[in-house]
Simulated scan of single mutants.
Amino acid sequence: MSTQPVVQVEDLDVYYGTSQILFGVGLSVQPGETMALLGRNGAGKSTTMKAIMGLAPARRGRVTLHGRVVSGLKPYHIARAGLGFVPEDRQIFPDHTVEDNLVIGRKKGPDGQDEWPVKRIYDVFPLLEPLRYRVAGRLSGGEQQMLAIARTLMGNPALLLLDEPSEGLAPIIVQRIGELLRQLRGSGATVLIAEQNMHFCLGLASHATVIDKGQIVYSASIEDLKANDSIRQRYLAL
């Protein structure tokens, strides 16, 4: 396995207007890792994801994807380079069917990968297949979240970015989303999850990075985080 990170984030400073939100943020995700970016509400998780995706351009620092600098590019160029982003509000196409949403998201990966045809999507997301002709706006929140993840995978991303995938969902649906993400990890997918729900990530992530007040304060394996009660209590306890 290559030792080059799929994505490397270095010294990102991000502002909203005159307010600085991120302060020198840095992290890296290796091939096959599921990295959890953890922190309380308002810690800077979503801004970090948007900065990686080019939706919140950094004033300083850089983002590289497989060694190629992508910071400063338009978000659609970053998507074509291999980043797939599932935002917190999902942004499905509500007036189109489930299958239309999937087809809209279909594209080959940056090196011509075509690992996520519709058939495989339905194999991995069996709850979506009987809903394939349903208008997406009539789906439940959990079904919409699954559709948003599935649609992003249809673009064959090198790295899947998930912003708060458990937010606002019933516990049984959160469990199903977790099972899906464990399955993706088992298939070798590389994933970065921004989450406030630490317990959701403990059973599915391989590594964890903790952000607080716009700064990275801890980064280690998920097993190390489980053993580090002081970090959990200081930065993640509600």
Rank of each mutant, 00 (worst) to 15 (best):
V124K: 05
N156Q: 12
K119L: 03
G105V: 00
V135I: 15
N156C: 08
R90G: 01
L153F: 10
L160V: 02
D95H: 14
A148E: 08
I92F: 09
L128Y: 02
L102A: 14
G178T: 01
P110C: 10
L159N: 10
V124W: 04
T97V: 07
T152A: 15
E195F: 01
I173Y: 06
Q145G: 02
V98M: 14
D163W: 02
S166W: 07
T152G: 07
N156E: 11
T97N: 05
Q91V: 01
I121R: 12
Q144V: 03
A158Y: 09
V124R: 10
G155F: 01
V191M: 15
E164C: 05
E115N: 15
L102S: 09
T97W: 01
Q113M: 08
E99V: 03
I121L: 14
E88M: 08
G178Y: 03
R176P: 00
G109R: 11
T152L: 13
R134P: 13
P157Y: 14
T97G: 05
R182I: 00
A150H: 03
A170G: 05
P165A: 05
E143H: 13
P130D: 15
V118A: 09
T97P: 08
D89F: 08
M154P: 00
L169C: 08
Y122L: 05
I104A: 10
R138L: 12
A148C: 11
D89Y: 07
D111W: 11
D100E: 15
E195K: 05
M154D: 09
L102E: 05
G109T: 10
N197F: 10
L162A: 03
S166F: 06
G188W: 12
D111C: 09
E195S: 08
N101H: 06
K119Q: 12
A170P: 00
L128I: 01
Q91G: 06
Q175F: 07
E129G: 01
Y133M: 06
E143S: 13
M146G: 06
L147P: 00
K107S: 15
P117C: 11
P110R: 14
R182Y: 01
R176Y: 07
L139R: 04
G137S: 14
K108C: 06
I193N: 12
P117D: 06
G105T: 02
Q145L: 06
A158H: 11
H96K: 15
N101C: 10
N197D: 14
Q145A: 07
Q196H: 10
A158Q: 13
L184N: 06
K108W: 00
Q145K: 11
L192A: 11
P110H: 14
V191D: 13
P165V: 01
N156Y: 11
A189P: 04
F93S: 02
D123P: 00
L128P: 04
V124M: 13
